[in-house]
Amino acid sequence: MSRTVVNAVVNGEPVEFLAGGGQSLLDALRDELRLTGSKEGCGTGDCGACSVIVDGRLVCACLMLAPEAEGKRIETIEGLADNGHLHPLQHQFLEHAALQCGFCTPGLLMASKALLDRNPDPTETEVRYWLAGNICRCTGYDKVVRAVMDAAADLRQEGKSK
């Protein structure tokens, strides 16, 4: 099997890794870069546990080929906290107990970040539809939605105070 060298920027750091032509970005992140925070729940784009942000767009890493990452900027859960300081979303997920098993949490956080990057003041309905691709079987979504809304408020406040 031929493997090609891929150069990308992952969480702000340039990385170089070998990728098979049919290998998913998720497998490359997990197996080549050992960034196992992105999870595989289905491998078919139906659960969102592998959500990452590529050049500003939220995608399922399982539905992108690793060689496609060439030249791209990729954000994963491992890069969400800033030098050990939790992102307001991470903080609010903890405050609200918006996770139980925590397996879908990395994907939910990355999806929520992509939402708040675009829409700093989403309605509950907007949050729910935006996150419809992130299945959580534990929480019933109530606390997740509240956490995202409160994190949005935190970020707006932060923006004001800057």
Binding site: T36, K39, E40, I77, L86, Q90, A97, G102, P106
Partner: peptide, 17 residues
């Protein structure tokens, strides 16, 4: 906040795979 919380929101928690 749960003691294992930060691991779960930073991707550090190690699951089966």
């Amino acid at each position: 906040i749960r003691p294992d919380g930060v691991d779960k929101v930073t991707g550090r928690a190690q699951f089966g795979a």
